[in-house]
Design a protein around this nucleic acid. Structure first.
Lengths: 195, 195
DNA sequence: CACTTTTTTCAGAAATAGCAGAAACCCGTG
DNA sequence: CACGGGTTTCTGCTATTTCTGAAAAAAGTG
């Protein structure tokens, strides 16, 4: 399959970016190709288009499936496996966030929790444990937040993202409401006197 | 410098995770060491503690500085450079988000914008451009959101993070307010009839 | 259940990244 | 401007990752 120049550029770019994203060139290219394609592709088509070996494509697809970024399906009257990416880009983004959390955060979180079970024995270790505790707390919050994100449907997510920078304003609004409601009369309950 | 076992475990773990995070083992270990240390360390101390070559440490520190994750300082009466990480973990996290955006998002965003300037010439390309447009829109939102995050001070950020899953509820609250205010009487202005 | 088609696995080749040691460099100081 | 402590860059070797072609396995088919 011949690629038009803009599609080709995108595919090659994804290949190059792959290393920064923690995947290899072929995996990046396969993903780009499937993402842009208007129909599912089989492994042979991918092989021909990218000019890499069949086995390489097989391994790449396996990896992309382990990331849940591509799915396979069978077309009627054809024994080949056909691969495609989800239509909804929000769904793709959510998958990416979840998988990265699993791979990049969870192992460290596990180690930190284990380590922090034991008491520190000297000053240096005491300080180190404090630092680990800070990291652990933050990672847990990020992890929780990522879990919460997964529960949102694409529409809510879209809304949240559009909100973007407006969130702090929303927070202020909430504060005012709380003040009216009398639940919390302090202007900034958790702020230090002056920064 | 001898490391206590829990510190050692953390340092080694960071070394292993390095490959997933897009840094190499030594860089990961250096960072872990500096992060836990209760005082700034010089290159020689790092070399001795980790048992890697002096030049390797030098390159690692250079990389960590390019990420703005460690800073160097001079101690009075000592010509050596001393290295440390910021105290505030929120500041560290913000730096990480910003640097990752620069490295992992911005180049692709640039390519997408360029590509989308040109019109598509055939059906396949037309579809591909639609997909690129979706990706571009999402990446721009994420990028904007990341920029907004940078403007927040650590306290606000902490608050936002703690909020976590509560944000959707906040959204609902906002909706109700809007309804009261009469700006938007629909229950879910942008939702499809049924999902 | 033999045969064909398709996919996966594996072992080694090729490419890339990481590392140590040596050399070069930088910068105050006498 | 030579010296010495300190740092960075360069060079070549090593380890790791990526990739290919061949062989094995799996999955349909008549």
């Amino acid at each position: 399959m011949e690629l038009s120049s803009s599609i080709q550029a995108f595919v090659l770019h994804f290949g190059e970016m792959g290393s920064r994203w923690g995947i290899n060139r072929t995996v990046g290219q396969i993903y780009a190709l499937l993402y842009l394609s208007d129909k599912p592709l089989n492994a042979e088509e991918i092989t021909d288009t990218l000019g890499v070996s069949r086995s390489n494509v097989s391994m790449g697809l396996k990896e992309l499936q382990s990331w849940r970024l591509v799915r396979s399906q069978h077309l009627p009257g054809d024994r080949k496996d056909y691969f495609s990416t989800p239509e909804d880009i929000m769904e793709i983004a959510l998958t990416l966030v979840e998988e990265r959390r699993k791979r990049e955060l969870d192992p460290t979180l596990t180690l930190l929790r284990q380590t922090l079970m034991e008491p520190a024995t000297d000053d240096a270790e005491r300080h180190a444990h404090e630092r680990m505790q800070q990291m652990c707390d933050l990672m847990e919050q990020v992890s929780d937040w990522s879990h919460d994100l997964q529960k949102l449907n694409p529409k809510e997510l879209q809304r949240l993202l559009t909100l973007g920078s407006a969130v702090p304003k929303l927070l202020q609004m909430k504060d005012k409401l709380s003040v009216i409601g009398g639940k919390d009369k302090r202007k900034n309950s958790s702020d230090k006197p002056a920064d």
